[in-house]
Nucleic acid binder design. Structure first.
Lengths: 239, 239
DNA sequence: GAATTGACAACTGTTGACAGTTTACATCCT
DNA sequence: AGGATGTAAACTGTCAACAGTTGTCAATTC
């Protein structure tokens, strides 16, 4: 990590402690430093980061709405634990969202975007030729990020990225490397071709299929029992 | 409103002030009591509700993540203002989500749910015969709520309902009454038929179409200029 | 007269303290 | 010994006060 990753100063860059704390706790959750199910102590976190409890509490509200933690009155904050059924639901939802995003990008794409797109595809193809899984994985992320960014629907992007974050709660780290690069690559090419051709519905279907295939590949790597009790569901919001 | 709408006591029902405050502010925003663009003063709200600023600040974090307000450091909280382009984006996203929800319910529906479903449909048909727009509107809401509930994907439900709330930020109140009950009813029947038959893809398409038709009907009632400047977009998150 | 400066008022960001609840543990009774 | 009861520590929910920032407006300067 670079010693000095400060952005050039500007008033609009001023960050409040709450935002910094939220980002840091989110990081710790997503990296698994704070494992699912863990109980978070406000005082401990506050002391650890050298701030008072106020900003920490505010940060927790944001994380709750984002679905990363559950807050129980008078008990505390728990890093959310996701059961098997919920994991499947999240995959399905994310797949549908990704389909919508591909569809939208197909409608709105610009020539410039298609060029960047082609670059990422070429990068992945090169990684396959070199049999470099790490490079493929990285370029794959960039490819997906590009679609999500280029779709132009900022709310869809925010929701999609939120769901993606949530899924880190049950995807073990290191497990993410793509096993079958060729199959994955074919799906990417189908998506890119449909988007480039402006075929929205075809792009949507290709996007959904790509993520559902990812879901099946993931689910195949585990049996339901390895999950924290298959029947364990998120507590129903007391509305 | 009933004098006493308390739920039966249970420890898990204990509500913290933050939750109550968040719910109340959300209500005021959704009813238009606090109009889009309005600047919210923490002290004023706190004093008005008889609590201190702490719970109010925490509530604001939740509302921000939900997309109902924008928070600017050292300046304050603004009720979010949605421009024309963003409104269209929200309609599209919601339509896609609703399609996914219909599709999911078609896969998972139970006979019991189909019966309740039929009831709602019959209620709407009766409202049409009586030419009672108010009753139709109410049953229509119930019909939609039933689908969203019965789909069984709780995260999809949460996201969908969040987007729906967000859309209250630009839908003027009172404008929601359905104009063309017959057309709307036909779409409902198409959705219900597909779900009952378990035809997931057909249900999805019918769901998307229904909401996009709603979008077009809404957009037809206004010209872009009536929106707060068409080019006005949400400030990009400073990540 | 226009622009700049400086002081003041209002508000947000943060903190530390207090009150009420939960949890753990030791004690007591059967 | 086993379970119930009471007590204390730890933690959460809430509040009030302090510090720092923003915006206003009058006084000052050119």
């Amino acid at each position: 990590m670079p010693l000095d990753d400060q952005k050039p100063f500007h008033a609009s860059n001023v960050q409040t402690l709450t935002v910094l704390v939220q980002r840091e706790i989110e990081r710790r959750i997503l990296t698994g430093e704070l494992p699912a199910g863990e109980r978070l102590s406000e005082s401990a976190l506050a002391a650890d980061m050298g701030v008072s409890r106020g900003p920490v509490r505010e940060a927790m509200r944001g994380l709750q709405q984002a679905g990363l933690v559950d807050i129980v009155a008078n008990k505390g904050v728990l890093v959310r634990k996701i059961g098997y059924d919920e994991a499947v639901d999240l995959y399905d939802l994310r797949g549908s969202l990704f389909g919508f995003i591909c569809e939208t990008m197909a409608r709105r794409r610009t020539d410039e975007q298609c060029v960047i797109f082609k670059d990422k595809l070429e990068g992945m193809a090169a990684a396959i030729r070199a049999d470099d899984k790490e490079a493929y994985f990285r370029t794959n992320l960039e490819f997906h990020a590009a679609i999500v960014e280029f779709c132009g629907n900022s709310r869809a992007r925010a929701v999609y990225e939120g769901i993606a974050k949530e899924m880190h709660l049950f995807r073990r780290r290191g497990l993410s490397l793509i096993e079958n690069m060729e199959a994955s690559m074919q799906e990417h090419e189908a998506i890119a071709a449909a988007i480039n051709a402006g075929r929205a519905e075809t792009a949507r279907k290709a996007g959904v299929r790509h993520l559902l295939n990812g879901r099946d590949r993931f689910l195949a790597t585990l049996d339901p029992d390895s999950f924290a009790s298959g029947s364990e569901r998120r507590p129903v919001a007391a509305e």
